[in-house]
Design a protein around this nucleic acid. Structure first.
Lengths: 144, 144
DNA sequence: TTTCCGTCTGTAATCATTACAAAATTATAA
DNA sequence: TTATAATTTTGTAATGATTACAGACGGAAA
């Protein structure tokens, strides 16, 4: 986790953003959201924890759990549950799909250009998740 | 779990189906697949276990786990992981979406009429899951 | 019968997540 | 400022679905 001038600007912007949503911008909250916004590998709780630990030595894993739950409740991040036994977190809340490679376990984003569905008239839809699994191009080449 | 004449025909058909796939049609395997084919509530492991226990008194939960894993590996059933901490199983393998109501926890099937995506050229796609959450029509009426 | 092999069972271990209470920090009031 | 209240954070313990594993069981073949 690098902290340069640009990062400090991000931190300030995120602080303001949280304030606008009525969330107290504690250092942990701002740091987690900033980390998720700048990382594109859909990190797990452990990865978030280990990445922020150096800059927040007192950080506890429970706080990471609490924080991502709060951020998700306010629709600031997405919880990706494509992995049955470990949640991943995505700072990109634009609508898109997730592909998980069974070989390298990497998560890929992909665009959803059109999604038409039926049978849900009168339902209130809060979240839409599209999860694909398979083997990514990179791994397919290896296994030729 | 009712066992009538029609059910016995289903059991025989499923037995043949498993044989065709090269799976030994043990009573447990046939029973689990038959149960998933005839139940439309996307049961959990516990529900499958408790439903079959009366007709298979020696049944163990581990066997239910093993069996659904086997059936899923052969694409005879779908594993629905919309629920973060408990998998559900679906005997309907036609492509469709799943909606989970946050109020009553019921799972609804819905049709997917069109799904267009990009960015996955060269990827080998094995499974496609579409999960929506929110509040179903029934619960919305209650909370008016 | 005996042997072999795959299936099934029951118990124990795993591990991400949650519960919870105390400690630390921050905000508010006097 | 100081005292008090409210919120955030921490660490440990509990939860509970899933997995690992070794032994029991059962059918088929010789």
């Amino acid at each position: 986790m690098i902290t340069d001038g640009k990062d400090q600007t991000n931190m300030q912007n995120i602080t303001d953003e949280l304030l606008n949503k009525g969330i107290k911008p504690s250092f942990i909250r701002v740091s987690v959201l900033n980390y998720l916004r700048s990382s594109f590998d859909h990190p797990t709780i452990d990865l978030i924890y280990n990445s922020l630990k150096p800059t927040i030595p007192t950080l506890s894993k429970t706080s990471v759990y609490n924080t991502v739950e709060l951020l998700a409740d306010f629709d600031l991040i997405n919880v990706v549950t494509i992995d049955k036994n470990e949640s991943r977190y995505d700072g990109n809340i634009e609508f898109h799909g997730h592909f998980k490679c069974e070989k390298c376990n990497k998560l890929y984003d992909f665009r959803l250009l059109n999604l038409v569905y039926g049978d849900l008239e009168g339902f209130s839809i809060k979240s839409k998740d599209v999860y694909f699994t398979g083997v990514c191009r990179k791994c397919l080449k290896v296994y030729l």
